[in-house]
Design a protein around this nucleic acid. Structure first.
Lengths: 230, 230
DNA sequence: TAAATAGTGTCTCTAAGACACTATCAT
DNA sequence: ATGATAGTGTCTTAGAGACACTATTTA
């Protein structure tokens, strides 16, 4: 950075969390209802200010634990948002993080949230949220959609052991497109390191028991699993 | 963000720029030599503090204009870096931007830079830079490499009109791999919106004149142009 | 035995990779 | 003519998409 600047303007730095899961066959995001001004009563992303001695990712992990207590399978930085005026309280730069969690137990509302809950991401796309959180949420959802194509991140939405059908349903929920079960199986099983077989099987589906798999060691998918066009 | 926080700790917010170009058949980054402490004499990314009434991208664009005056073909946010202790002067969160520029005229050193210049990205990977700038540079280079696969961003490195061979040389320089000219041509020309033909041709290569193209309207490449393995 | 879900095999077609020849300029 | 670079065509093969049948469980 430059040295010429004599003054270091004072900013507040916050982290905001786009927490996503797959629930009832749909991609859902964790939102809180704001209890105070500004934007009282409006839905908002969970988050909070970064402490002065704390790293960005550490702050995100702390807020996530404080506000949800969920087991988090994946946490990555999304982007930063810092338009002047995005927060009426002052000059706040917010570093957004994307968190992916498997099958969620109902989240407990944090001390600062009037209510917390999962809402379907598609319905949220046109709803007014606090601050610029709709934009942040949209960026997070798009990041997740895109990353399913070329990473093994879908396993982050699954329990520790899962069936191929459950993994496929993650893709279908997030992309909003049905996938051919046979072609999907072939792709997943032929991609080295995507999933590892376990000795066990489950019958929670009702029909013939399905083999259970664990997430493999690979993180990239190459060639990618392309999202159907339409 | 949370409301419970009573104090808003004061941070400085900076932008750092990973400015990339293709020069002498290699990917090169714009670096300055720091004239003052901390890290005096060490190479660093250009950048500066964000003003209190200024957006993040606006600050990046301003610094870019101030320090280089280059025509910028592409500017996107890269990531934010905010470990405590990354800047000995205090708590600084840096929002890094990635800028891609075509054939550069020699950059003019900014007022705050002892010297500015292009250095090969590969050689820089193992060199000590100021702050955590080596990490930021590495992230920027990797972003550029990856984005060549699934976007038309390579045209950002080219002049307004360019030949297919010049576009191919951008890929070869950034990926560090030779590409088959015939397969490359087929891919580029058969991808709708990648390039648009112009009526003119050039003979700056020496042999048969080559047709000139302009960047097309498409920004995504689907299916992608895969990077050779090895 | 009927219903439900799991798991596999084949054909086709698109597109990438490997490769060789012809075309058009300058000298 | 020779050298240099541009531009096109073919064969092969990997892999995606479409599609139908058999297998194993519960009710």
């Amino acid at each position: 950075m430059t040295k010429r600047e004599q003054s270091y303007p004072a900013f507040a730095v916050a982290v905001d969390l786009v927490v996503l899961t797959v629930l009832d066959g749909a991609l859902q995001a964790l939102l809180i209802e704001r209890g105070e001004e500004p934007f009282q009563g409006r839905l908002a992303l969970p988050g909070g200010f970064v402490r002065i001695d704390e790293g960005l990712e550490a702050a995100a992990a702390r807020e996530l634990a404080e506000e949800t207590g969920l087991r988090v399978a994946h946490l990555e930085q999304l982007a930063s948002y810092g338009e002047p005026g995005r927060d009426p309280r002052g000059r706040v730069v917010s570093v957004a993080y994307l968190a992916l969690v498997p099958e969620p137990p109902t989240p407990t509302a944090g001390t600062d949230a009037a209510a917390a809950g999962w809402r379907r991401a598609v319905g949220l796309a046109h709803r007014k949220l606090a601050f610029d959180h709709r934009r942040i949420l949209r960026d997070g959802v798009e990041r997740a959609r895109a990353k399913l194509e070329y990473t093994t991140l879908a396993t982050s939405f699954c329990p520790p052991e899962f069936t191929i059908a459950e993994l496929r349903q993650v893709y279908e929920a997030i992309w909003g497109h049905p996938l051919d079960p046979r072609n999907f199986s072939r792709k997943v099983l032929s991609t080295e390191g995507f999933v590892e077989p376990t000795p066990s099987a489950t019958t929670r589906g009702g029909g013939r028991p399905a083999r259970l798999y664990r997430a493999g060691k690979a993180s990239e998918l190459s060639p990618p699993l392309r999202r159907p066009t339409t």
